[in-house]
Design a protein around this nucleic acid. Structure first.
Length: 516
RNA sequence: GACCUGGUAGCUCAGCUGGUAGAGCACCUCACUUUUAAUGAGGGGGUCCUGGGUUCGAGCCCCAGCCAGGUCACCA
């Protein structure tokens, strides 16, 4: 498909050719040896000091006043004003560099290198007086450029969500807060990794292509390996592989795992997402709760320097200790009804009275889960641990040491959403086989998210897996909270999208020299 | 998957009861040696998401579709 170039694109291509005609390479190969950044200059410069700098970045605005101009240069950590004076950059009679290259042939969005000295303007802005200017990259498309007025109000911001997500590179250039959210996301994983390494847990990598998918309830993506001629699945979780490593004698293992689930999409769901899973031998779920609190509190401190974080309308405080409720207690707390001693029929009646949709296929466990999901989860704003889930919902968790029908499992809920899921891991191979078999029954009845029976995993734990605490924590969800983002798309560089109509069009064959 | 909202210049948006398409910024030309949403003067730029239909005439009305966002369902 051929795209007709816009007026502005034609102008830029003509400028590109004119630069070449003047002997200016618009895409030079040699390195440009930058020695500082905009932010460093602004932080370190003292008035009166003589400071020579070499910086590079994108030209973001120009104010041309005849023989002198101001412009803004944006580099990796901010913007700085540059002052371009005709006679300073053109010391001889030849004023081409200023009159033609800078004033006519450069455009907003071009990447240039600057050698100059730092000074402070009449109105007190730290700026760089340009001695030499080098074209490093000509930009052929106009940037959607927001304007910021004297009050700091942004006008005409680049806001179209579709364009922002499809062209994240543009979003990152023109919307500085976007860049900041992604930097925070990386700081978050760095902080978590540092925390786990300090405890001497081993970071590992396990297969993404799996012959059997397991470790969670979800529909998988399916693929095919040609040489082995076999079906493979993209992992929906890495739990069963990490537990095999615990069997093998690693007492603390973790992995940042990109997982894939072939499910609906929403502002909380992307088909590929990231979890950190951790397994520690000889521990239980109560111990793991303490670890989660400590770890997330540290992350908040590392990212924000405090434990309180504004998320939408809520101020969330991650300071330890977090509230802890059993699932029954939470339901009692939010509905005033104690369902812990109810039989299935009474519970179904109660659910109906609470306005929770029920159908006959729901067992006791599903009913409890539904009531909790409807009546409690959304109300939990401050970080809260919910413990002791129904056994039916948790085929990989160990049965509760005291309470029949429950498992030793907890989730941390924050801002009305689950951020992690953990259990005392089921290590009784006989019980595990029985739980898998229940899942198979569900699968036969049409539950396309039921787990598969993994014989090799059972073989592994038949050799003996020590009592182990396991954790899965949603990195995207936690990033959303830590960056006050409303959508998962705001913490994923390239969120999943349908293909653009007609794809990205090719350029028409355009030869500026043939135009006059 | 269902429902709601939207798609018009590079960007952000107007567009009346259906009568040949508008603004601001950006762009082009000219002026201007400390500006900062620079300024002044002049100018150019459109597949109105796509395809049908109604009509003398459609950006606008009708039908079908595409893409996005939101809400719900499922899920983390």
């Amino acid at each position: 498909m051929i795209r007709v170039l816009s007026e502005q694109e034609i102008v830029r291509r003509e400028s590109l050719q004119k630069l070449r005609d003047l002997g200016v390479d618009p895409y030079p190969a040699d390195l440009f040896d930058v020695n500082t950044t905009s932010k460093q200059i602004k932080e370190k410069y003292k008035e009166g000091e003589e400071l020579n700098v070499v910086i590079a970045g994108r030209l973001m605005s120009r104010r041309i006043m005849g023989k002198a101009s101001f412009a803004e240069l944006q580099d990796s950590d901010g913007k700085i004003q540059i002052y371009v004076n005709r006679d300073e950059i053109c010391e001889t009679e030849d004023k081409t560099m200023y009159n033609t290259v800078f004033k006519k042939l450069l455009d907003i969005g071009d990447i240039i290198g600057i050698t100059g000295t730092v000074f402070i303007t009449k109105v007190g802005e730290i700026s760089v007086k340009v001695k030499e200017l080098k074209v490093l990259t000509k930009s052929l498309r106009p940037l959607p450029l927001p304007k910021v007025d004297a009050d700091g109000t942004v006008h005409d911001a680049f806001t179209d969500p579709e364009k922002r997500y499809r062209q994240r590179y543009v979003d990152l250039v023109v919307n500085p807060e976007v860049k900041d959210a992604f930097i925070k996301r990386t700081k978050l994983t760095n902080s978590m990794r540092e925390f786990l390494n300090k405890k001497e847990y081993l970071e590992v990598e396990t297969p993404i292509l799996q012959p059997l998918y397991g470790g969670a309830a979800a529909r998988p993506f399916k693929t095919h390996h040609n040489t082995l001629d076999m079906e493979l699945y993209l992992r929906i979780a890495n739990e069963l592989y990490l537990k095999r490593l615990v069997v093998g004698g690693f007492d603390g293992v973790y992995e940042f795992s990109k997982d894939f689930r072939n499910e609906g999409m929403s502002r909380f769901h992307n088909p590929e997402f990231t979890q950190m899973e951790l397994y520690v031998a000889y521990k239980d779920y109560a111990w793991m709760m303490d670890l989660v609190e400590e770890m997330v509190e540290k992350i908040a401190m590392d990212l924000h320097g405090k434990t309180e974080i504004q998320v939408g309308d809520n101020l969330i405080n991650f300071q330890r200790p977090w509230k802890r409720y059993t699932m029954y207690e939470a339901i009692d707390h939010f509905t005033g009804i104690d369902i812990s001693k109810m039989d299935e029929a009474t519970m179904a009646e109660t659910a109906k009275k609470l306005g929770v949709e029920v159908d006959k296929s729901m067992g006791r466990g599903k009913l409890i889960d539904e009531i909790f999901g409807e009546k409690c989860e959304g109300q939990l704003i401050q970080p809260t641990f919910i413990t002791d889930y129904p056994v039916e919902m948790s085929p990989l968790a160990k049965k509760h040491r005291e309470h029949e029908g429950l498992v030793e499992r907890f989730e941390a809920i924050c801002n009305g959403k689950e951020i992690c899921n953990a259990f005392s891991e089921l290590n009784d191979p006989i019980d595990q086989r029985a739980r898998f078999e229940e899942q198979l029954e569900l699968g036969k009845r049409g539950d396309d998210e039921a787990m598969l029976l993994d014989e090799d995993f059972l073989r592994a734990i038949e050799y003996g897996m020590p009592p182990t605490a396991g954790l899965g924590i949603g990195i995207d969800r936690l990033s959303m909270i830590m960056t006050n983002s409303n959508s998962i798309q705001d913490v994923l560089f390239f969120p999943q999208m349908k293909t653009e109509k007609g794809g990205v069009e090719e350029w028409q064959d355009y030869n500026p020299t043939s135009m006059t």
